[in-house]
Simulated assay, not measured.
Amino acid sequence: MALHLQHDWLPVLGRTVEIRQWNATVRAGRVDAVTDDGDILWLAPDGHHPRCLFERSLGYQVWIQYAWERQDRQ
C-alpha cells in the first residue's frame, strides 16, 4: 500500500488517513473534522484512542492512499 503526502487537508474529511510527524507515524484513523483554513484536523475516536487534534504548524503531515489505488484489480 503506497501512501502519498496530502498537502490540502480539507478534502480528507471523512477519509482514513495516516498522521506523521518528522517522518514517524503518530496515528491512523478517520478524519472527523477539519478547520476552514485546513490547518487543523481531528481524528475520530477509535477503540482506546480518543478524539485527537493535529496542527500543521507543529509539523504534522497527512498521508493518504489514492482512491484509484484502493480499488480491487481483477
Score class of each variant (00 low, 15 high):
1 M>L: 09
1 M>Y: 00
2 A>T: 15
2 A>W: 14
4 H>S: 12
4 H>L: 07
4 H>T: 11
5 L>N: 11
7 H>C: 04
8 D>T: 03
9 W>H: 01
10 L>D: 01
12 V>C: 02
13 L>G: 01
13 L>K: 00
14 G>Y: 06
14 G>W: 00
15 R>Y: 08
16 T>R: 11
18 E>G: 10
19 I>P: 02
24 A>G: 10
24 A>T: 13
24 A>Q: 15
25 T>Y: 07
25 T>M: 12
25 T>K: 12
30 R>N: 07
31 V>M: 00
31 V>E: 01
32 D>K: 04
32 D>N: 01
34 V>E: 01
35 T>P: 01
37 D>T: 09
39 D>T: 14
39 D>N: 08
40 I>E: 08
40 I>K: 10
43 L>G: 06
45 P>A: 10
45 P>C: 04
46 D>G: 00
46 D>P: 03
46 D>K: 02
46 D>W: 02
47 G>F: 00
48 H>G: 10
49 H>V: 12
50 P>T: 03
51 R>S: 08
52 C>V: 13
53 L>Y: 08
54 F>Q: 04
60 Y>W: 03
60 Y>C: 05
61 Q>R: 00
65 Q>G: 00
65 Q>W: 05
66 Y>C: 07
67 A>M: 15
67 A>S: 15
68 W>I: 14
69 E>Y: 15
69 E>L: 15
69 E>I: 15
70 R>V: 12
72 D>F: 14
72 D>W: 12
73 R>I: 09
